[in-house]
Design a protein around this nucleic acid. Structure first.
Lengths: 205, 205
DNA sequence: TGTACATCAGTGAACGCGCGTTCACTGATGTAC
DNA sequence: TGTACATCAGTGAACGCGCGTTCACTGATGTAC
């Protein structure tokens, strides 16, 4: 697979991979095109055979992240079926699991400052990911009495916000935030209380 | 107040202020010591009369942010008294209000990568801010039946996470996240549902 | 199987840039007498 | 009120650095015959 020599073989993906590990290690600020090239065993100039520049490389890393993310969310959703509740809870867990397992991708997607509207492909795949969570919220809404049912898009926004907040504040070496609870426990319990508030779980579940 | 001439008058604070507006405009990455100095009408070297360097300047901006933040939270908490519920809800709203009103400070505090443990002063003031929310959560917990009462620190973590998530995802020019709801509405409703889940608000509030 | 040639991925040197930081200096201010 | 002097905030030139990007090039690969 790895043919060494003048030609690299699959430099494009190697660059994305080294960019990801660099982002993971040094944060979005610490990422440099030159260092990514160096790690891939190649001159900085070689990057321009495969990408338009620094931003384009980050955007591709983010795109691949969204692809994985959307797949994981979809898988979780499917696995929870046919229970709307199980599917919803599974997507919440999948969000955190993704952030934990693919930190480089997560940072490239949410903290690197690249806009999701940068390219149509990026917009499409991020919409796909969001769509899964919104679908799960819509399914769930049907089990709430219409008169006290919040819009599904609001429910999905709530869960997304809490998931993202847990990741940013507690799943990283955060601002002195040494919580006694694991991010997983925090998110699980937080979503549980929220769902109870929607009347979807028995008061003393 | 502003005496022009060789000596600036209050360069230290002027540098913090220009750093804050720069951070607000260009994000944590876009901040440079040189540009902050330029905006304050001064040579980059002058910065070293007041700060140890770039990091130290950001840290001071963050420190001032935590100070304001803690004060706002405390004020909101006091204002909600003697109702534990009102005080708790008020602190949640204060979180978002702070992020909206002082975006430069918010970014310096939570997105610039500076650690809260950088200096004792920074650690102390951030602990003070967190303390207010935790106090509010503790007060609130007393109104929950002991057998179904989650730890107060968990409740405060949930609210902090949701607040932070709402700010990051919906209160900025975020990743294509044009929600039909205002950040204020989202947080208000999210916290409302959560509190219902804790049994603190009537099912059909 | 062998040769000629087109393709193109990667090289390496060079660029201009703005960065953070240092240094010896100088000009303004304030105080002692 | 006036002079001498200490203090110190800000200057401006210089530094080394690594960055992203460009360019003409060259070496490896693959294809046609």
């Amino acid at each position: 697979m790895t043919k060494r020599g003048y030609h690299h073989g699959n430099l494009r993906q190697a660059l994305v991979d080294s960019a990801l590990s660099l982002i993971e290690q040094r944060g979005p600020t610490g990422f440099t095109l030159s260092e990514a090239a160096k790690r891939a065993g190649v001159t900085p100039a070689a990057v321009y055979r495969h990408f338009e520049g620094r931003e384009d490389l980050i955007a591709e890393a983010a795109r691949q992240g969204y692809e994985i993310f959307a797949d994981l969310m979809q898988y979780a959703y499917d696995k929870g079926q046919p229970s709307a509740l199980a599917a919803f809870e599974a997507t919440g867990r999948a969000y955190l699991a993704f952030a934990r397992k693919y930190p480089g991708h997560y940072i490239a997607m949410f903290e690197s400052g690249i806009s999701v509207n940068r390219t149509p492909e990026l917009a499409a795949v991020s919409a796909r990911a969001r769509g899964v969570l919104e679908r799960a919220a819509t399914d769930l809404s049907r089990h709430i009495a219409p008169d006290r049912r919040p819009p599904a898009s609001m429910v999905s926004a709530h869960i997304w916000a809490m998931s993202h907040g847990v990741v940013e504040l507690f799943a990283r070496n955060s601002p002195g935030t040494a919580s006694p609870f694991s991010p997983e426990d925090l998110l699980e319990s937080g979503i549980g209380i929220y769902l109870r508030g929607l009347g979807l779980i028995a008061p003393d579940g």
